[in-house]
């Protein structure tokens, strides 16, 4: 089995609201609006990512593969739609860092092998991060490095790391005898 990197470096997009604060409660309708729910082809999903989030309607044009998204609390609240994860995979987003995630969103991301990192203290540190910054994230330790500074986020759980390494939930399932 090939092993995937557990440390990545990428360009940051800090999702801020119209007042300039780190965006909390970005729900799945803001990430991937329900008017596109009939789309099942992942390659068609990237273009609509965040296009219902005030100030970020053109995100899909700006994002490049390898970029990292940062958001506030409860990212991905709302519905269970997988497209809200897949639209970022389609764009090649390397990781999402947030103060916390909606529970279903967290599962969907983990099961898809999209790296998501929870950083409970992020809200208080939000002014340290800016769009365009280059950060390094270590999934195994939860350390985020920005220039000379390091910040502690939560490391991947064992099941998250296993699924990430396997590729996705299905590939992981094949590695389990029990299942």
């Amino acid at each position: 089995m090939t092993t995937k990197p557990t440390t990545i470096t990428g360009r940051l997009w800090v999702l801020t609201d119209p007042d300039g604060h780190l965006y909390d409660d970005i729900d799945t309708d803001m990430i991937f609006h329900n008017r596109y729910l009939h789309i099942t082809d992942i390659s068609q999903m990237g273009q609509y990512a965040l296009d219902n989030l005030a100030g970020w309607e053109d995100f899909a044009q700006k994002a490049r593969p390898g970029d990292i998204i940062m958001a506030g609390r409860n990212f991905g609240a709302g519905s269970s739609r997988q497209q809200a994860v897949d639209c970022f995979r389609a764009l090649g987003i390397a990781a999402i860092v947030a103060a916390s995630f909606g529970a279903i969103y967290k599962r969907n991301a983990i099961n898809s092998g999209l790296p998501i990192v929870t950083m409970p203290g992020l809200t208080a540190l939000a002014d340290r991060f800016h769009s365009g910054d280059e950060v390094t994230i270590d999934f195994a330790t939860g350390l985020i490095t920005l220039g000379d500074a390091t910040f502690q986020a939560q490391p991947f759980s064992q099941v998250q790391m296993d699924i990430y390494q396997a590729g996705d939930l299905f590939a992981y399932g094949q590695t389990l005898e029990e299942v």
Partner: peptide, 20 residues
Amino acid sequence: QGMGDKDIAFTFKTGKTWFE
């Protein structure tokens, strides 16, 4: 519990899922 479509396809086949 609501889950995404990958999760559910997996449960259709296995009858189980991981849960924290």
